[in-house]
Write a protein that binds this DNA or RNA. Structure first.
Length: 591
RNA sequence: GGUCUCAUAGCUCAACCGGAUAGAGCACCGGUUUUCUAAACCGGGGGUUACAGGUUCGAUCCCUGUUGGGACUACCA
């Protein structure tokens, strides 16, 4: 049951009866009445005054009068051209009863079971995950869950970039160290061990460049002639030629990284239905490039390199295959897009990738369109902004990255500090306390990253940015735990039969709860989890006010009122839990 | 140079796709608990929405320009 639709139909009728104006119900714009005015929904009459031939005030008053005389609304007031409507309590209550009975209240069918692949995470296998990856993973996971609730058939995919020069750098440095270090022997998590050698390579490489520059080479020359770079390139060639020793080392070290990633993913709470590996897809990409050449969509330069002309799309000429026949990044993405389509026959294919690749995805779509691939129009780049630190951008080479594993550990510790300080852990086992610290710490981190519009850059201040009070994950969790507690006290086996006049906090809460489906659909169609994050905060804030002002399980509360308020609390708890679930945040029963 | 993007309270973010007096949190000041979890609630101060024009009943939102950040523009990924 959708209150907005109902009010729209009321207004459609009123416009017709009073002014003889015919409009589509869906085109009638309604807003929620602002805090400082009396009312639930507001209708702006300005767009209609030309047809009514009356002043905005007269128009609004005439419509309000009509609706009230028909008993469609409880009351109304007019401020300039704004018609503020107060709904009948019975209507709000009807919504509440209907929603409570509806098993599918937390789902919509907007997606119409369309198949959608959500690719996210997509790490390189030469170093551990950092804060930027965390944003990516949380966004990807949440977008996928939101789409599922919105009625889409979703597959989560992780495209692992497991080949290339960067992996060879780690391999080379590991080999040269001669230490034969393993995760077991070193006690290091696999991805961190491999990352350590990636850093080691870079150190050596930089020293070599400096030496060459001192010998009189330009920096560009030095970068190409440095010994370790030459060796890394040779190793990449050996890899591409299938040299058994190189492949074995590659498999060994990638295996360590995957083990490490699994631990990080598990702690982050993200998962995947399927994995793709660039080592598998780049060859398919090459084959499709050949197909494009045959179709004359691509062209070959004299040096043998392959290009596409996208100038008619407002883009540029783009290289698809190097002169030596090796593939570039976009070649692999062409292959992966095809492979995904072969696997799932998707209607939509989302790529959760940073906004630094906006151009890349325009090019990818342009290419697929020119290839007349059936899936070309379904691909969409879910672009998000970089995560900045107070010191500026994160740079792995300068050691200013915030490591994902370290950060999660710090959040856990910080949560523990605060939880012990509050001293509400009576009767909990050490394991339960530990689990709570994890849930609360991760909630603070996740909510902080997800509440911001994905498109925008995000400033992360490790020292002070993660709070546990106010507009935060733990605040929302706390509200839910509070609800849980009050229901425990009051008992929830009462059957709701009626209501007395709704108080302001109650109707405000009902309207907020009613917004769930509207918010879900908006989040789903815009691929924007921050809609859910901001919404659930709103619900929690409104509930806390209700909780403070309206006694629920206290002695002197009439049974009918108590029953209604318990039911309202329970429904609020369900709504909060559901939103948190969409965001990958746990909802502890007690905290 | 070209293309794209961002700029809102001291700080971090909202603002329901053009609507009212631009809202929250943090920080600061003051108040609320013999009563359901004070990680809560209420109140106060704090804004020329970067700047200048334009479009219209109405602009933080759309258009143009300026300034200032960022990204892309690699035979890197």
């Amino acid at each position: 049951m959708n209150l907005v639709h109902i009010i729209q139909s009321y207004l459609k009728g009123a416009l017709q009866q009073v002014f003889d104006i015919e409009v589509e119900s869906a085109t009638i714009k309604l807003e929620q009445t602002l805090q400082d005015y009396k009312g639930d929904y507001t209708f702006v009459v300005f767009p209609y005054v030309k047809q009514t031939r009356k002043s905005p005030e007269q128009t609004a008053a005439a419509l309000g009068d009509f609706l009230q005389s028909q008993n469609k609304i409880a009351e109304y007031n007019v401020v300039k051209g704004f018609l503020n409507l107060v709904l009948n309590d019975a209507l709000l209550f009807e919504f509440f009863i209907a929603a409570g009975k509806d098993e599918n209240h937390f789902r919509t069918n907007t997606g119409g079971a369309k198949k959608v692949v959500v690719e996210y995470s997509s790490p390189n296998t030469n170093k551990p995950l950092h804060l930027g990856h965390i944003r990516n993973n949380l966004l990807g996971f949440a977008v996928a869950e939101i789409l599922k609730s919105g009625g889409y058939d979703v597959k989560k995919a992780n495209l692992i970039n497991d080949r290339g020069i960067h992996i060879c750098k780690s391999m080379l440095a590991w080999q040269q160290s001669g230490l034969q270090e393993t995760p077991q022997s070193s006690g290091l998590k696999g991805d961190h061990l491999v990352g350590k050698y990636y850093v080691a390579f870079d150190k050596t490489y930089k020293a070599e460049i400096e030496a060459l520059v001192n010998d009189g080479l330009t920096e560009d020359e030095a970068k190409k002639k440095a010994q370790s770079m030459i060796e890394a390139q040779q190793m990449l060639l050996r890899w591409e030629n299938g040299d058994p020793e190189t492949i074995a080392l590659w498999k060994l070290m990638n295996g360590w990284v995957y083990d490490g990633f699994d631990v990080t993913y598990k702690r982050l709470g993200v998962d995947f239905d399927t994995y793709y590996y660039e080592s598998n897809t780049y060859l398919l990409g090459k084959a499709i490039v050949q197909e494009g050449l045959d179709k004359k969509v691509f062209y070959k330069k004299e040096d043998g390199s392959v290009w596409i002309d996208l100038t008619d799309e407002g883009l540029d000429h783009k290289l698809l295959l190097r002169a030596d026949g090796t593939s570039v990044y976009i070649t692999q993405d062409i292959g992966t897009a095809q492979l995904k389509y072969d696997d799932f026959h998707y209607d939509m294919s989302l790529y959760v990738v940073g906004n630094e690749q906006d151009y890349h995805f325009k090019v990818l779509q342009g290419i697929l369109k020119k290839m007349e691939k059936p899936y070309a129009n379904g691909i969409h780049h879910v672009s998000y902004g970089m995560v900045d630190l107070p010191s500026g951008k994160m740079k792995s080479r300068e050691g200013t990255v915030v490591d994902a594993d370290d950060l999660m550990e710090e959040m856990h510790d910080e949560a523990r500090r605060i939880i012990l300080e509050r001293g509400k852990t009576e009767g909990m086992t050490a394991e339960q306390i530990d689990a709570l610290c994890e849930d609360v710490g991760m909630a603070a981190l996740k909510y902080y990253l997800l509440r911001v519009d994905p498109q925008k850059r995000l400033l992360f201040n490790p020292a002070e940015s993660i709070d546990f009070e106010g507009n935060t994950g733990p605040y929302i969790q706390y509200t839910n735990a509070r609800i849980n507690s009050v229901i425990d006290k009051a008992g929830d086996n009462l059957v709701n039969t009626g209501y007395s006049t709704l108080l302001e906090p109650e109707r405000e809460l009902l309207l907020a709860l009613h917004n769930y489906k509207i918010t879900l659909d908006k989040a789903a169609t815009t691929y924007n989890p921050s809609e859910i994050a901001n919404y659930v905060y709103d619900v929690a804030r409104i509930y806390n006010r209700f909780y403070y002002e309206c006694p629920i399980a206290k002695e002197d509360v009439a049974l009918e009122t108590r029953t209604f308020r318990v039911a309202l609390s329970k429904f609020t708890g369900q709504t909060i839990s559901e939103c948190l679930r969409l965001l990958g945040i746990k909802a502890p029963k007690k905290m």
